[in-house]
């Protein structure tokens, strides 16, 4: 395998007609250190209020649903109402995420909330998000001990609690926020970063879009404005 490695790398250098790769190595290091932005669409550079509006519009376009609530105190009612409205069981499998600790679940005693990774039988999951990206209505979810990835994919219904201040314009803004918190992740990058844009879908049967292929059939975003 080591032999294959040197043959591939040597073959590349030879094909490119190079003797030493020092100049190239320096250029590559510089590009990575600078990680400069390329062209950012105007759509990704709105003011914060318009960003939130665009995020909501784009998320709705891809068949996510959005409920705006004034603060975390209003989340239990919003979630219970959503579950009842869709005839879903009043049982949540939630991420053990401290960011969700301030949600006063005891206001809705009929709602059962357990925490941990997703299990087969879990019908509804609830997680936070790292960011919302306005340009395409995309959620950025990052893994960690308090944020198991399975919650984003196994249950039929995924509810995400997103604060308005977490909404950014473009993907690059989300990367900047992630870099700013690099210390919280081993090596600066979480194990898994999921960019989620609407519920699961497929066009594999006669190219007609159907929701709920393997991942969640429903994606519901509770947007906390305060």
């Amino acid at each position: 395998m080591t032999d294959s490695r040197s043959q591939i790398l040597g073959g590349i250098a030879k094909s490119l007609g190079r003797i030493s790769g020092d100049a190239q190595r320096a250029a590559a290091r510089e590009r990575i250190a600078a990680h400069a932005r390329n062209l950012i669409p105007a759509r990704a550079q709105l003011d914060p209020a318009d960003q939130v509006r665009l995020f909501e519009q784009m998320a709705l376009e891809v068949s996510a649903t959005v409920a705006r609530v004034p603060d975390l105190d209003a989340v239990p009612d919003a979630v219970a109402g959503y579950l009842a409205g869709h005839n879903l069981p009043a049982e949540l499998r939630a991420a053990p995420d401290p960011a969700l600790d301030a949600i006063p679940w005891d206001r809705r005693p009929t709602l059962t909330v357990s925490t941990g990774r997703a299990r087969d039988a879990d019908a509804v999951s609830l997680t936070g998000a790292f960011a919302g990206i306005a340009e395409t209505g995309t959620l950025m979810l990052v893994s960690g001990a308090e944020r198991p990835t399975t919650l984003n994919f196994l249950p039929d219904t995924h509810i995400v609690v997103l604060k308005a201040e977490q909404i950014v314009g473009g993907y690059e803004d989300a990367w900047d926020r992630l870099r700013a918190q690099a210390g919280s992740f081993e090596g600066g990058m979480p194990r898994t970063v999921n960019m989620v844009t609407g519920p699961s879908r497929t066009g594999d049967i006669e190219q007609t879009i159907q929701l709920g292929a393997h991942g969640p059939r429903r994606l519901h975003i509770v947007l906390v404005e305060g």
Binding site: M58, E135, T192, V193, M195, T197, G198, P199, S200
Partner: peptide
């Protein structure tokens, strides 16, 4: 599509 439903970055 504007963006695919799932774009996932895996690191280790």
């Amino acid at each position: 599509q504007e963006f695919s439903a799932y774009t996932t970055f895996s690191t280790g």
